[in-house]
Design a protein around this nucleic acid. Structure first.
Lengths: 334, 334
DNA sequence: TTGTAGGCGTTATCAC
DNA sequence: GTGATAACGCCTACAA
């Protein structure tokens, strides 16, 4: 049975309100009694009951965080960033997985509501506009991270997909490549559309007309990348470089090249996107576009905390991507 | 302003206790009024305030989960498993990172205490016996996962390191290998000692005297594995197979072999431990010992829920490891 | 079956 | 400065 302020009050022979005050703002209490109470509290091993406090203050100092699955390393890093700043500011974070199931996702958010979290962060949601009513019902700030429909909501943070792709293509152009293919993700994600657009931008800016035959479709996984790469290899005029939707796709592409005896990067350069932990361990180590995941988590949390302080009604942050040059890209030889 | 049972009571012209009952156990209330109240609650968008309920029932239906960092994919998967069953049983999970700092870890557990979580799960803690007092102070069930000092506490779950190592060595022996090296982790982890012991067991059981020269020390990371492998390659009598403390170490070993032009697995077989997501993507795909991470998380959560139901005062689960044979091992040729 | 009353541990608003 | 007293929203005897 934990000790409460009433217990302390009884022993110190003061009212429980005095104890509460002595513990919260000692200045509003007689110096000596304040000290007396505080040492007493310590020696009794007093631990404030946050549940009771929350009921009274109507704030839980808790953030809800819903993701498809933390088992995804990409997501896990963002969560780490969120948790880091939340913890520093005295907030706890409720983590819930939705497995990408919209129903589960909504259920989870609802549960967050019942638990009276102060704010909700949602990662990579596809729920989109379904959130509107939920949001209104909850009436707590919502921050969307890498959402598929960020435009519809006030606060969001996402990577600069287009700029990142542009970076990748620019790098390849600098290396002398002209025939640069893109392996996308056929699942119709916004991020794919943006990366494709970045690829186009880059080529156009260099005076190259983006050839449709150099656009192949993967599925965001190695298998799809492999297949797409093989399709590209069947072309009469091969590309000399490939920009992939993500690292997983690039990994598949690499495998296909390896299987066909085409050396990377000597005969074909490959660029990924994400900079997953494993990117540096591929053979050859993958040149890729990095998403600052932990940092994105931090900024998302910071945005949330700002919202809780009543700052700005809404904000859309687009985080710049950076290029990480490793061993899978080289100057064009042929 | 969310609606409360009092609001409903007023509108339905009953007492709030009736509303409470109608919502909790409808059977204890007149069928009709129960229905009336329930539909009313729904139409008003009533959401129970879990904070208030927790204060009253003294149970929060919340689990605290402290890890070094969720950014580690290994840990993230365990967390996913925990969250999965917790959510299914109506429990929320508070996630906190300690960054491996004992002080932070204790601070976090303390905060969990103040938030009155119903139970605490701790992963890969090094805090060990420091927990004793904290635990007593909290007086909630504690489940330790892959702890470095599991013996000291009631409930724990960990992988069968020794058995897993035995499995790996057995596989290599079956392939005809006799000179099998072990690359460990010099940081003095219990798991390293156990895997080393498993290696010894395996060799002894095959009538081979474990040669000290075939024990090399890495650091659990690719770099260390690479160095250790190079040490091994300097031996006059080379091993024909290597069992590594973990996949990261194996990755380094693979790199060293590649650099020295020694083909894997034709001239040297390599086995890892963990089965990280990237293991299958290495060149060649890594044969390794799998830890069922998500499952371990599930079982840890299940153990916790059991504890909360008052089952068994303590329990030590050792999860069997399994061997995943891929392309980095082959029959001895030389 | 239903209502009244009290309590869960805090914070907050009053008087004194 | 300090102490009653009343919330906060729910659950739960105990009475009716």
């Amino acid at each position: 049975m934990p000790v409460s302020i009433k217990d302390i009050a009884r022993i110190a022979k003061v009212s429980h309100s005095t104890v509460s005050r002595a513990l919260q703002k000692p200045d509003s209490v007689n110096r000596d009694t304040a000290d007396r109470i505080r040492t007493l509290a310590r020696s009794l091993g007093y631990r404030p009951n946050v549940v009771a406090r929350s009921l009274s203050t109507r704030r839980t100092r808790t953030l809800g965080c819903v993701v498809t699955t933390v088992a995804d390393p990409f997501i896990a890093e963002v969560v780490a960033g969120i948790e880091e700043v939340a913890q520093r500011e005295g907030y706890a974070v409720h983590l819930a997985n939705s497995s990408g199931d919209p129903e589960r996702e909504i259920g989870v958010v609802r549960s967050f509501g019942e638990r009276r979290v102060d704010g909700v962060l949602v990662m990579a949601s596809r729920v989109g506009s379904l959130y509107r009513p939920l949001l209104d019902e909850l009436s707590v700030p919502l921050v969307l991270i890498d959402n598929q429909h960020p435009g519809e909501f006030g606060r969001s943070i996402s990577i600069d997909d287009r700029g990142g792709a542009h970076l990748a293509v620019g790098h390849l152009l600098e290396l002398g490549h002209r025939r640069i293919a893109y392996i996308g993700d056929r699942n119709g994600l916004q991020s794919d559309a943006d990366r494709l657009a970045g690829w186009r931008d880059g080529l156009c800016a260099a005076g190259i007309d983006p050839p449709g035959e150099l656009i192949a479709q993967g599925d965001g996984k190695p298998e799809g990348g492999l297949r797409a790469m093989e399709g590209l290899l069947a072309l009469r005029a091969l590309p000399t470089a490939i920009f992939c939707y993500n690292d997983m796709t690039a990994m598949g592409a690499l495998r296909a090249l390896h299987a066909h005896g085409i050396e990377t990067p000597r005969r074909m350069s490959v660029v990924g996107f994400d900079d997953l932990p494993l990117a540096q361990f591929l053979e050859p180590p993958l040149t890729t576009v990095r998403q600052p995941r932990v940092e994105m988590g931090r900024r998302a949390a910071a945005m949330m905390l700002g919202a809780l302080r009543g700052e700005s009604p809404g904000e859309r942050i687009v985080v710049p991507a950076t290029l990480v040059v490793r061993g899978s890209t080289a100057r064009r030889t042929s």
